[in-house]
Write a protein that binds this DNA or RNA. Sequence first.
DNA 1: ACTTTAATGCAACTTAGTTGCACATATAAA
DNA 2: TTTATATGTGCAACTAAGTTGCATTAAAGT
Lengths: 122, 122
Amino acid sequence: MDIENLVKEKDIKLTTARTEILEKLIHAKKPLSYDDIKKDISMDKATFYRNITKFEKKMIVNSFESNDKKRYFEIFESPHPHFVCVVCDSVECIKKHLEFKLSGYTIENIILKGKCKKCNQI
Amino acid sequence: MDIENLVKEKDIKLTTARTEILEKLIHAKKPLSYDDIKKDISMDKATFYRNITKFEKKMIVNSFESNDKKRYFEIFESPHPHFVCVVCDSVECIKKHLEFKLSGYTIENIILKGKCKKCNQI
DNA sequence: ACTTTAATGCAACTTAGTTGCACATATAAA
DNA sequence: TTTATATGTGCAACTAAGTTGCATTAAAGT
């Protein structure tokens, strides 16, 4: 996956700031918060949030609120569940497909909250 | 369900403030945020949050973070999924049991995010 | 180059929730 | 009934993620 493909036909100017954000998210193995990536990007947080909002509107990025009051962002791909640890606040993607229908509702994201492997061993 | 049963053997003093919170939650049909119930309770928000934290530790109340940056609280009963609308931020309980296992993990809450019935019709 | 439009940085703001501290209430001991 | 000790409460100040207003800068079209 490369950045040109992501923004293709999305009517978005590819500025330095935007490239930095997308680069970081593309190489991430799990959703990241602003806090997770601020050390690796050079823009102001206002710029970060304005750009991420734009990415979300264009369906390039997708986000959800975790347990730690932070928003987590990932490149929008085929929908998959996420696991959020209520002890250590870590966030993971669940590869397994979770089929679940609810008539009248549209389900966009499934979030499982609980204790992750590490925290279960303590 | 009554309040005496809830706090029985939980080593909790039943003050006026605590009774107010529990009364409200017992009669709620869905999880409520502080914002939802502040008009109906007479205590300071610090007292509310300190008590709700205590209830959570004692497994009387259970909570989760929604999409609107607010925490939603409900009386702790048998675990069930919740639906959170990403458009109108409404929160609902899902009665249907959702079985989902993930080895090594403990799942405490399942949150489905998407569009609710109302918002789907718009 | 000139104009128009969108992007950025900075600082101030918003808001859910937390914390320190003094005062109040309750339970236990004397 | 007083005294001691612990717990609960209100108020105000604080915290931290995210937002907004505004002046400045950069980019794209003519």
